[in-house]
Amino acid sequence: MTQRTEHSTVMDRLAIEDLVTGYAATVDDGDWPGYLALFSRDGRADYRSAGGIEGTVEEVAVWLAQVLRLFAIRQHLIVNRRITFDSRDGSPGDTATVQADYLNPMQLAGPDPDTAGPAAPNYTCGGRYHFTARRTPDGWRLTGVVVDEKWREVLTPDNA
């Protein structure tokens, strides 16, 4: 690899890291236009392992907006990111996969979330994301995300 190729690969990795971080931030903040902007036009998402749906990114964004209203606080922690680029003549190509573990503590919304003060999370789940990404004229974009939820814990007043 030449120094120019190595520099380009580092820049591509940073751009993909930004996509994954942007994914977490937009979901946690309920920024659905921002969420959609992270994906290619043909982007798809699959949340079935977490009890959700699979479909176009537009369909999934609508579903997420409805479901996540149940949670007053959301925080994705995405770690152990493994980025793999396709290879083109020995150099990184224009598509990549990312495998990343997640921990997602959330707080279920109460009857009046506007007056509720901060509280500890009472719903936590964890698992692994499988992202796919493609270089586009507008930069790297996600083409897909598959959630592989491995566990969840819901604390009630009885077991908190």
Rank of each mutant, 00 (worst) to 15 (best):
A25F: 13
T26Q: 14
T26P: 15
T26N: 15
V27N: 08
D28N: 07
D31G: 14
D31M: 14
W32Y: 10
G34K: 09
G34N: 09
Y35Q: 06
A37E: 07
A37I: 00
A37N: 07
F39L: 03
F39D: 02
S40G: 13
S40K: 11
R41L: 15
D42W: 08
G43L: 08
R44Y: 09
R44L: 07
Y47Q: 06
S49Y: 02
A50K: 00
G51V: 00
G52W: 02
I53C: 10
E54K: 14
E54R: 15
G55L: 01
T56Q: 15
V57Y: 09
V57R: 14
V57S: 09
V60W: 02
A61R: 06
A61E: 08
V62W: 02
V62S: 10
W63N: 04
W63Y: 08
L64R: 12
Q66P: 15
R69T: 15
R69Y: 13
R69H: 15
L70Q: 15
L70W: 13
R74V: 00
R74T: 04
R74E: 01
Q75W: 12
H76N: 05
H76K: 11
I78M: 15
I78V: 15
R81I: 11
I83E: 02
I83L: 05
I83M: 01
T84W: 02
F85I: 01
F85H: 01
D86I: 05
D86N: 08
D89P: 09
G90W: 03
S91V: 09
P92K: 07
P92T: 05
G93E: 03
D94Q: 06
T95A: 06
V98F: 00
V98G: 01
Q99R: 14
A100T: 03
A100K: 02
A100H: 03
D101H: 02
Y102E: 05
Y102M: 13
M106I: 00
Q107R: 08
L108F: 08
L108G: 03
L108S: 01
A109D: 05
P111D: 15
D112V: 10
T115L: 04
A116E: 15
A119F: 10
A119D: 08
A119W: 12
A119T: 13
A119K: 14
N122D: 14
T124A: 10
T124Q: 13
C125M: 13
C125P: 01
R128N: 08
R128P: 06
T132D: 12
T132E: 14
A133Y: 13
A133F: 12
A133Q: 14
A133S: 09
R134H: 12
D138Y: 10
D138M: 11
G139I: 02
R141K: 08
R141N: 04
L142A: 04
L142P: 07
L142C: 07
L142Q: 10
G144Q: 03
V145I: 10
V145L: 08
V146L: 08
V146S: 08
V147E: 04
D148F: 06
E149F: 05
K150P: 05
K150H: 13
W151D: 07
R152S: 14
L155D: 06
L155N: 04
L155M: 12
T156P: 03
T156S: 12
